[in-house]
Amino acid sequence: MAIIGVKNLSKHFKVLNRHEGLLGAARDLFSTDYRLVKAVDDISFQIEPGEIVGYIGPNGAGKSTTIKMMTGILKPTEGKIEVNGNVPFKNRQKNAQNMGVIFGQRTQLWWDLPVIESFKLLKEIYRVDQETYDHQMGMFNELADLKALYPQTVRSLSLGQRMLCDITASFLHNPKIVFLDEPTIGLDISIKARIRELIKELNRTHNTTIILTTHDIGDVEALCSRIIIIDQGHILYDGDIKRVNQLFGAYRTLRVQVRPYKGEQTIDQVRQTLVERYGEDRDFTVRSREMGWINITFRQDEMPLLEVLNYAMSRLPIRDVQIVELALEGVIRRIYEGALQ
């Protein structure tokens, strides 16, 4: 039995066409020149209890709009949603009782108060009994080591600390579903890893269904077994992450700085070194980039990233290395080009 069912869901917004300049602004006061934006256009999917689903797409794809409809904040223009047996927009409060929500760029914590006050407030709001509260707080403390943060005011927390508190707070009442909208936005690698661990653990212990929207492919790879890719209001792909993984993983780019850098000569040296190891017929490119950086792009299945890195390090006078993160936009472009057919 699916915990979330979405059928032929659409959301259209009317947006005023703004005109330029002073005259335009005056015209806009009386203008009825609207254009229809289809933020979400006829999408359907079902989510089973306990799943972690990555809901991804570029900016403006319709992710947040879908989440807002599933949480009952926005009313769908057309179509059906059922969350946990409720129609979200009609039973917003009832639906909210079994739901946790994080919008990554906002906080549900009280800015001017010590962290613990927000937890106490949420305890009352969701009518969590003392025993459950103590148990949950104990678990959060074990997972994320939060106790030291409780007496601090929220405004004095770092972004990463605040996000840890925000995420645990959304699990306090043991919800059946948690929506995480960009939970790792603006965070550094180590705190991202901690947050992913935390989410994974919370999902495992309570079998919580988690819908995760993100721009970070790393989040998706670490957490989700299934992804839904949305672009311009349409679903492009819904299914196992492994098939898409081949796309993500198909090409990786390694950036190296070689000293001393002698332009073309160094590029040739790098190319030659790799040819010695992998032979002429392998599909890779070596290009020079700004500030003496050299980009090596290759197929992950033919040349494993770590192997290339180790080999290059042992043969070349390498001063600095970067592994380029995969860009979601590139993946989506490849899907459009028919890579999944």
């Binding site: 904040i73 917003r92 409060q93 909210a96 969701y126």
Partner: peptide
Amino acid sequence: SGAITTQLTKPLD
């Protein structure tokens, strides 16, 4: 600012 979205995800009137 849109902060109302967070408030509306709570089971409160």
